[in-house]
Design a protein around this nucleic acid. Structure first.
Length: 718
DNA sequence: ACTAGCTGACTCTAGACAGCATGTC
DNA sequence: CTAGAGTCAGCTAGT
């Protein structure tokens, strides 16, 4: 079927956009989706492989919906994915469709958001927007759920499920288009969504899957490939692909393995670099080196310079972006990644090598990854239009293991996905929000609402009411819900907690600390943040244990509560304290590279930690305000100090655009304490922070003392 | 007296969403 | 539904 003959009269301008991208004929799964009523507003679940044209299915549905006068919402699981989709849909601007994005770190102003035709957002953000009463939600006519199989995740799945249930309750005529990887039970999910189902394993590029053992790859179709012998397994696989002009993506299970593998592979890729590659790769390496002195970053630069790279969450966003761009442009020949890339961005390669098929899980030890995850990774192999085929290879070390891998993964079927909603810890937060936002007014109301969830579809005849009533009881005890003449309502505290989007238990911890008699210090408050379930605490190595304990003893009077040493809580407490200590050092201006080497973390880890702490510090400040607690002032200072990583005396300076923790400290030590003081001595300021920065800075300071003017944004600076 | 090299016990392990109001070195 | 790479102390054999 041609896109122009799909039975819906799309405007010529849109067809022209598609033609220019080479899209004329629809892929078979896309045709099936249209036959299943996609363009008649029917709900649809498409369970099809990566790269088989999911995005176009969603796009056509959204565009149709908008042409009929509606509005569309595209829900993704990751911020990086939101940015990617936002960029992609922005191409529709030439047909008059505008696209907005809303995630925690990037937001096109909230009121403005509703004016767009398509809005891309993470599911947590959508939930938050609903809780905060964004009015444009009511205008939606089409919602796309990207990567719905995420519903299986114990941590993130329930949010998606509840958000969908809320949307369905608010908008009975909403068209839902769900996109999923191949799973064992798509019918169940389709039934939940009341959707027609399209299942297909069609791919635009041939995919061969196989297992590597002792220099030979055995593919599932029975063919074998002998590799040039001798070399280390990954290098010989990389060699075979790269020498023929392809690229490789390697999945490892730990960061350390990823780094050392990238280093080994780099000596192979180096030999294949063309002159142009060398030039491009050298520039990227210089760019990476210029940003940071951290050992990890230098290692990365060294790999990139030789045409390989590693990719994991210890790198911060800018480094990851350089690696991703370098790989897409073809100059970086091989990327070795931890699971960061398994779910995240769309980075296809001719060959995907799965080296680490086991993953450590604190509860079970080392366990094999789910088949579903393997299929996701393998599906990355083969770039449409660019590669003649794709290959996915698992690496085995013995005959037995090879047979196991072939059986389990290559020939195996992916698992069922199941709702993870029925746990008290996730229900706590969601039940509070149901009552605070008016979706339910009683125990029965909550139970009734739950009928709209996947959980109730999968567990028919099973009741959640026991857990729900116990959770309501807990929320009442915490003072977040009360019953007034038979109707459940949220207290002002409960209302606030729901909007702040934190776990009620986190809020409860904060409230108890704020109401206690202790005279709080920064450590007291930062530790409370670290003791909440919303904060992921750092691992304490056995070699660090004594040190942290000594710190606890020294600061014993500053903690709101110290669990007894024999209790099961004590280990968790030690982790909280270590985490608090790192954050306090950040707020005391310890340099990034010192933190990285002292605690064996990467810049990305620090950024993530600080970001979470700042979010919780904001919540703490708001709760202190609500409760008129004495600690409000201190909490608010901590929130700002956390944001910038500075001592209190730098706060006036750091508010200025272009001035961060390092420059602010230099200026302060030179005697400049306020923005005003800077304006009076431009020459010396220029000497301290450099001329260009100083010029940009002084443009923003109004000498007459009327404060800071809106900054002039420079285009194309990056 | 010193040390390269080996052995075995022990250690350690992936990722990433949310508020609010604007911009690092 | 519990692995495997890395690290380090302690030992030995060789210089």
């Amino acid at each position: 079927m041609r896109i122009a003959e799909c039975g819906y009269a799309f405007p010529e301008a849109l067809l022209e956009i598609y033609r220019s991208r080479g899209i004329v004929e629809l892929y078979p799964p896309q045709e099936e989706a249209i036959n299943a009523g996609l363009l008649e507003g029917k709900n649809l679940l498409a369970a099809i492989p990566t790269a088989s044209g999911k995005t176009l299915i969603a796009e056509l549905a959204m565009v149709r919906s908008i042409l009929e006068g509606g509005k569309a919402l595209y829900i993704v699981p990751l911020r990086a994915l939101a940015a990617e989709k936002h960029a992609e849909f922005s191409k529709l601007s030439s047909v008059g469709i505008s696209v907005g994005i809303s995630t925690g770190d990037f937001d096109v102003r909230d009121e403005g958001l509703g004016e767009h035709d398509i809005i891309v957002a993470t599911c947590e953000k959508v939930d938050s927007l609903i809780r905060n009463g964004a009015s444009w939600i009511g205008e939606l006519t089409c919602v796309v759920l990207d990567e719905v199989h995420l519903i299986d995740s114990p941590t993130r799945g329930p949010t998606l499920e509840m958000t969908v249930a809320k949307l369905k309750a608010m908008l009975p005529h909403l068209q839902i288009v769900a996109l999923s990887a191949t799973v064992a039970n798509p019918e169940e999910v389709a039934r939940w969504l009341d959707a027609n189902l399209v299942v297909s394993d069609w791919r635009p590029v041939l995919l061969r899957e196989g297992v590597f053992l002792d220099g030979v790859v055995e593919f599932s179709d029975g063919t074998m490939r002998q590799l040039k012998g001798g070399a280390e397994p990954i290098s010989s696989l990389v060699e075979s692909t790269v020498s023929e002009g392809g690229q490789c993506l390697v999945f490892e299970s730990t960061r350390q393995n990823a780094e050392s593998c990238a280093k080994r592979v780099a000596s192979t890729t180096q030999r294949t670099l063309s002159e142009e590659d060398e030039q491009a790769v050298g520039e990227m390496a210089d760019q990476i080196e210029s940003t940071s002195d951290v050992l990890l970053v230098r290692k990365l630069a060294a790999c990139v310079r030789r045409g390989a790279a590693f990719h994991h969450a210890g790198l911060d966003a800018q480094h990851r972006a350089i690696v991703e761009r370098g790989f897409r442009s073809g100059h970086i020949k091989c990327v070795v990644s931890t699971p960061t890339l398994a779910f995240g961005l769309n980075l296809p390669a001719r060959m995907v090598i799965i080296r680490g098929y086991r993953r450590y899980d604190p509860a079970y030890g080392s366990i094999p990854i789910p088949v579903l995850e393997y299929k996701q990774m393998a599906g990355r192999a083969g770039r449409p239009f660019l590669d003649p085929y794709g290959e996915a290879v698992l690496v085995a070390k013995s005959q037995d293991e090879a047979a196991y891998l072939m059986e389990t993964y290559v020939r195996g079927e992916p698992e069922r996905i199941t709702s993870k909603l029925a746990s008290e810890s996730v229900l706590r937060s969601h039940i509070l929000s149901l009552i605070a936002s008016g979706f339910a007014k009683s125990l029965d109301g909550v139970v009734e609402f739950m009928r709209g969830t996947l959980y109730m579809c999968q567990q028919e005849g099973f009741s959640l009411s026991f857990v729900i009533s116990s959770v309501i009881g807990v929320l009442e005890q915490m003072g977040m819900l009360t019953e007034e003449s038979g109707v459940l309502v949220a207290t002002p505290l409960g209302e606030k907690v729901s909007r702040l989007y934190i776990d009620p238990l986190s809020a409860h911890r904060m409230v108890r600390c704020l109401m206690s008699s202790i005279e709080p210090t920064p450590l007291t408050l930062v530790h409370v943040l670290c003791s909440t379930p919303d904060m992921r605490t750092l691992y304490v190595r056995s070699s660090e244990f004594d040190d942290v304990e000594a710190y606890i003893e020294e600061h014993a009077h500053e903690f709101y509560r110290i669990p007894p040493m024999e209790s099961g809580e004590y280990d968790a407490f030690v982790r909280e304290v270590k985490t608090a200590r790192v954050l306090l050092e950040w707020m005391d201006e310890v340099p990034e590279d010192a933190l990285c080497s002292r605690y064996r973390m990467g810049p990305g880890d620090i950024r993530a930690l600080v970001e979470t702490a700042r979010w919780l510090a904001h919540a703490l400040t708001e709760l202190a305000r609500l409760l008129h607690a004495d600690a409000h002032g201190l909490a608010s200072v901590i929130e700002k100090r956390m944001q910038y990583g500075v001592r209190q005396e730098l706060l006036p300076l750091v508010r200025l655009k272009g001035i961060g923790r390092v420059r602010a400290r230099r200026l302060y030590d030179a005697g400049y304490r306020t923005p005003d003081a800077l304006a009076h001595n431009p020459e010396e300021v220029a000497r301290i922070i450099g001329e260009r920065t100083a010029k940009k800075l002084l443009l923003g300071i109004d000498v007459k003392g009327e404060g800071v003017q809106p900054p002039q944004r420079k285009l194309g600076e990056f």
